[in-house]
């Protein structure tokens, strides 16, 4: 005599078990300024967009009004 096995033991409702977790927010890890711990990085990286040296270089490019000869 076969006994019917109860498959559905999950406390979650039927519709919750369909598909992936839709609450997950997909973010490109390459754009985040946090250390990648899988690579052993520990400190937060300097993600300044413009460095001090660059700022100085740009500063030289700006010709102020009145100094254009």
């Amino acid at each position: 005599m076969s006994k019917e096995v109860e498959v559905n033991k999950s406390p979650r409702s039927e519709d919750r078990r369909k598909g992936g977790d839709r609450r997950k927010v997909h973010t490109d890890p390459a754009t985040l300024p946090f250390p990648d711990r899988r690579k052993g990085e520990r400190r937060q990286m300097d993600r300044r967009i413009v460095s001090e040296e660059e700022k100085k270089e740009i500063g030289k490019k700006i010709i102020p009004d009145g100094e254009d000869g």
Binding site: K61, I62, I63, P64, D65, G66, E67, D68
Partner: peptide
Amino acid sequence: SNAAKKTADQ
């Protein structure tokens, strides 16, 4: 003045 144009070129 023309300075803006020079800045833009640079």
